[in-house]
């Protein structure tokens, strides 16, 4: 039976290796057909900002990889509202992540779910496995 896996992302990208490591684990884990969701809280919400251009810092940008998550059936992406607000961000500052529903002729659907801290707490409570990065 598929277990519910949640990956919690709490760190900004590029300054530390956590964001990239989390993505790698998510992509590898996606091969095991589990029920995967991602949560972005705290500085983790910065991972999803639009317009990341890493040319100047000589690092590979992994921003486009988030756009591929839908292909990996990772389409429950929770973003905590309070974390966005504390940082002066709105959903418009984030990449528009979608997934294609094969059963509905590949209709594009939103992957990001904006949730309050207490809503996220309920989602978290419902998981079988939680991994934090």
């Amino acid at each position: 039976m598929a277990k519910k896996f949640m990956y919690i992302n709490r760190k900004a990208p590029y300054g530390t290796i956590y964001a990239l490591e989390s993505l790698e684990v998510v992509l590898i884990g996606a091969a095991f057909d589990q029920d995967v969701s991602l949560a972005f809280i705290g500085d983790g919400v910065y991972q999803l900002t639009k317009g990341q251009n890493t040319k100047g810092i000589g690092q590979k940008s992994f921003s486009p990889v988030y756009m591929a998550l839908g292909d990996y059936d990772v389409n429950k992406i929770y973003v905590e509202k309070e974390s966005l607000e504390e940082r002066g961000l709105t959903l418009d500052d984030l990449q528009h992540l979608v997934w294609e529903d094969e059963d509905e002729d590949y209709a594009e659907k939103d992957s990001i779910r904006l949730v309050s801290r207490s809503e996220l707490s309920d989602v978290l409570d419902d998981q079988d496995v939680v991994l934090s990065f």
Binding site: A12, Y14, K50, G51, G56, S63, G88, D93
Partner: peptide, 13 residues
């Protein structure tokens, strides 16, 4: 440092 702001997509903010 501009390069760090660009990498993080926050230059406009």
């Amino acid at each position: 440092l501009g390069a760090d702001a660009q990498a993080r997509g926050i230059e406009a903010k």
